[in-house]
Design a protein around this nucleic acid. Sequence first.
RNA 1: GGCGCCGUACCCAAGUGGUAAGGGAGAGGUCUGCAAAACCUUUAUGCACCGGUUCGAAUCCGGUCGGCGCCUCCA
Length: 468
Amino acid sequence: MSLRLFNTLTRSVEDFVSLEAGRVQMYACGPTVYNYAHIGNLRTYIFEDLLRRTLEYLGYSVEHVMNVTDVGHLTDDADEGEDKVIRSAREQGMTVWEIAEHFTNAFFSDLDNLDVIRPTIVCKATDHIQDMIGLIERIEAKGHTYISGGNVYFDVTSFPHYGELAMLDRQNLQAGARVGVDENKRNPADFVLWFTNSKFERQAMVWDSPWGRGYPGWHIECSAMSMKYLGDKFDIHCGGVDHINVHHTNEIAQAEAATGVHPWVRYWLHGEFLVLDKDKMSKSLGNIMTLSSLTEKGYDSMDFRYFCLGGHYRSQLQFSPEALDAARSARLSLLDRIADFRRRADSVPEHPEGKAAAYLSDFTSRMQDDLHVPQALSVLWKMIKDTQVPPEQALSAIGFMDRMLGLGLIENTAEENLEEELSRLIEERNAARKNRDFERADTIREDLEKRGILLEDGPDGTRWKRKR
RNA sequence: GGCGCCGUACCCAAGUGGUAAGGGAGAGGUCUGCAAAACCUUUAUGCACCGGUUCGAAUCCGGUCGGCGCCUCCA
């Protein structure tokens, strides 16, 4: 069975074949670090993590490159959110560089909390200005640029493949429909490679270049860095759907114009949006929803990961507190059941057999079919509820499944030891129950609950578990 | 204004021609001193609405209404 992925280039599901057997090179668009990542951003990184985990599960060695864009969007412009950052930077006496570092750290901390495996290479835009200048020079040498109003522009008419990814009809692109026209452009789709003449004041980061002191355009960093680390041709490029029309379209133009190699990237994968309540999303209210805002309410980061696994990556996912609660309950129930398997299991075989093996195979085929995680999850639940699957077999299969899901199903269900004092209380309660002193027994149970220990009396005796 | 996507039970959500996965929540029951957990049963003759194609449609086509995304930094 092979991996099949939906390729935005062709708008269809294709068999995935890597350029080099057993090795996958993938580039994932990273954050622009001028603010905290919100949960919608994080959904996309979770999607990319599922892709990476599945590739690795299937035996590929994955080179996973991610940029951190710490230039370009850090100065003031008309956007209110950015004003706020500048304001807070000023208030806190931080430079834009410090702001970038702060939000970069916050970003990776979020990913760690979500058990998103870190990229093999993380590259900062400001460390690669010379690479960007070099790439612009190559594009210029091939005759795809012009200089106007002090800025270096990419001439989209010089690049016949322009807009293929987005399936743009260039004739019908309407300039200035929602934004002012840049008078320097020959064609509305043209875009800046290098600015020397900023439309923003207070530009905080500038570098020398053959075209004058200035800073790079919005799209060049991804082309330059991905090509630096992955070469002129590589397997997968992914990001959010919002990147298709402009960012990725322009990245392709830049890369292919410079090298003449087509296609530059073979598979383009895009994650759909998490849809929030309008109120919650309102920028004017300033309450973008972050992962920490969820954990502050008592959710575990992994509740959010589980929630994201409930929808397919190419469908919009409707976020609501109720939906997150449902994910939380489901996840905790899953952990409880697995913990129970672990108590009942003898030794867990390295590979599952029989029915468990069949479930694993079913699960894997759903994952291989364009990462149909919701279906894979339903297979996991079916296996868990199938009384014909012995616990040690189920555990063996779950171990493999979780390598793709990344829910910590094995790590978070290990047997724990209870403090001696608490164990003694449980024994005391059981003695009380034997003597039919239920008042005493219930008092102890309530006391333990206050200390985070829940008791369940079963036919095999009393079990305890920690409140989550 | 242009391009594209979506509308499935109380909620989230799979399902793209063959008769509605899964999870959460709710209801009833078994078990239990009680509780919890678990288990059993139950919750869409119907998939926004209207019309069409077909032996057969949630799935294809047309229209209507509603929601979302991109066209501007954006996951």
